[in-house]
C-alpha cells in the first residue's frame, strides 16, 4: 500500500489496484470454493473480487509491514501447538469432576498499539491457552483478557508475560525494523506492567 496522496491522484482504478492483497485473497477464496484451478475460475474470481472491493470499500490500513519467514514459521508452529494444548486443557477442565476454576480479567498493555499488530495478537491470543479478549483499546494498546483458570495460567503476571511474548513473536514476524528497535528500547519499562 502506497501513500494516500498518490492513491487519490490515480483515482478509482488506482484505489482498486492499491488493494491488490484483498483482490488476490478474494480470488483465492473463489478458486478454493470451486475446487479447481482453471482460467475461467481465476478470471471470474478476479472480476468478483474487483466488484467486492468497489462495492464495499474499506479504509486503507496504514501498515508498512515486512514479512520474515523464519520468525513467522516459529509463530505458526507455536500457535498450532498452543491451540492443541489449549483445546485439550479446556476440554479437560470441562469434563473433569469437581469445582470449576477461578476466572479472572487481566489487563495488559502491548508495546505497540498499531492496529494490525494489535488485531493479530488479540485474535491469536483468543485461540491459545486460557485467554479470551474482552476489550481492546486501539489508542493505548490495552487489552483486557478473560482467563479461564487464573491459577493454572500462572497468575496475572504469567498471563501478561505470555501475551507480551506472543506480541513479540507477532512483531518479529511482521513489524519493520524501527518498530522492533523502539519496542526493544521500551522493554523493562512498559513491558513489565
Amino acid at each position: 500500500m502506497t501513500g494516500a496522496e498518490s492513491e487519490h491522484a490515480r483515482g478509482g482504478l488506482g484505489r482498486v489496484l492499491a488493494q491488490w492483497p484483498a483482490l488476490v485473497g478474494l480470488t483465492l477464496v473463489w478458486v478454493l470454493l470451486w475446487g479447481q484451478l482453471s482460467w475461467g475460475n481465476v478470471v471470474g474470481g478476479l472480476l468478483l473480487a474487483v466488484l467486492v472491493v468497489v462495492a464495499f470499500p474499506l479504509p486503507p490500513i496504514p501498515s508498512r509491514g515486512t514479512f520474515r519467514p523464519v520468525p513467522f514459521a516459529g509463530l505458526l508452529g507455536r500457535f498450532v501447538t498452543d491451540l492443541v494444548v489449549a483445546s485439550f486443557q479446556v476440554a479437560w477442565v470441562a469434563v473433569r469432576p469437581g469445582p470449576q476454576p477461578q476466572g479472572a480479567v487481566v489487563q495488559v498493555r502491548l508495546r505497540n498499539p498499531d492496529d494490525v499488530y494489535l488485531t493479530t495478537t488479540a485474535v491469536l491470543s483468543t485461540l491459545v491457552p486460557g485467554t479470551m479478549i474482552v476489550e481492546a483499546e486501539r489508542d493505548t494498546g490495552m487489552l483486557s483478557v478473560h482467563v479461564l483458570d487464573i491459577e493454572g495460567s500462572g497468575g496475572p503476571d504469567g498471563v501478561r508475560r505470555y501475551l507480551l511474548d506472543l506480541e513479540d513473536r507477532v512483531l518479529r514476524s511482521f513489524a519493520p525494523r524501527d518498530v522492533l528497535a523502539r519496542c526493544a528500547a521500551q522493554d523493562g519499562t512498559e513491558g513489565t506492567r
Binding site: 491451540l83 489449549a86 483445546s87 470441562a94 470449576q100 476466572g103 485461540l127 479461564l148
Partner: peptide, 20 residues
C-alpha cells in the same frame, strides 16, 4: 463445558478453543 460452566465468559472459552 458450554453446559457446565457457570459464567458466560467461561462458556465462551469452551466454544472457542475445543470446538474449533
Amino acid at each position: 463445558g458450554a453446559l457446565r460452566f457457570d459464567s458466560l465468559l467461561a462458556r465462551m472459552h469452551a466454544i472457542t478453543k475445543p470446538q474449533v
